[in-house]
Amino acid sequence: MFRNQYDTDVTTWSPAGRLFQVEYAMEAVKQGSAAIGLRSKTHAVLASVNKANSELSSHQKKIFKIDDHIGIAIAGLTADGRVLSRYLRSECINYSFTYESPLPVGRLVVQLADKAQVCTQRSWKRPYGVGLLVAGLDESGAHLYYNCPSGNYFEYQAFAIGSRSQAAKTYLERKFETFMDSSREELIKDALFAIKETLQGEKLTNSICTVAVVGVGEPFHVMDQKTVQEVIDSLEITEERADQGAAMQEDRSPETAPMDI
């Protein structure tokens, strides 16, 4: 059952210098359905795959508004994600109470990472089992960050987390260089393309994904399902044209080892 004798406690090191419990928490992120994020100079887009647990249930909410200028997409334990989103919201409210201006995204992300880190260093705690893509806007432009259970955080141009996110990452890696100057609409399309990659041939519809946008002059909001479907329809048309050219390049490399702790 156990991988080894060093994984019964978050705070116990393995002789190889690893913290297994923390790595397990990182695994939890991969179990969740995919979430992706990308940004230009002025806009950031988040998208997630909605997977219902059963035919009889609805899916869980994976994208949360934090403030007018920040939103998150999560993968992993949604319950932990909700706890963290409540924390992020209250930090934003407290900051704007004191300064009457929005909390810079990067600073919020560091506070969040510090909070996650504490859980990796206390014997009576458990790391959060959730990965967060934090998208936001501040005076230095649009930003996208990835926060993981280990307390690490990274800034990205575009990123994907959750199950089968590698396919989306490959897509994003191929295209990210154009994102900086992308328009809002192009970003949304690329987000949906990336989501499509994670579906492994399953048909992309508005019932299976959620898209949210934040940008200059546009407070963070989840796009309504009708608009999303319109974009999906428009990209199927362009895709058909592309298919007539070269066959879509398939890259289904197996999931890589856990990210650096």
Binding site: E100, P104, R107, D138, E139, S140
Partner: peptide, 10 residues
């Protein structure tokens, strides 16, 4: 923070 954000007079 050294992150390009700064507190203004407001």
């Amino acid at each position: 923070w050294d992150d390009g954000n700064s507190l203004g007079p407001k």
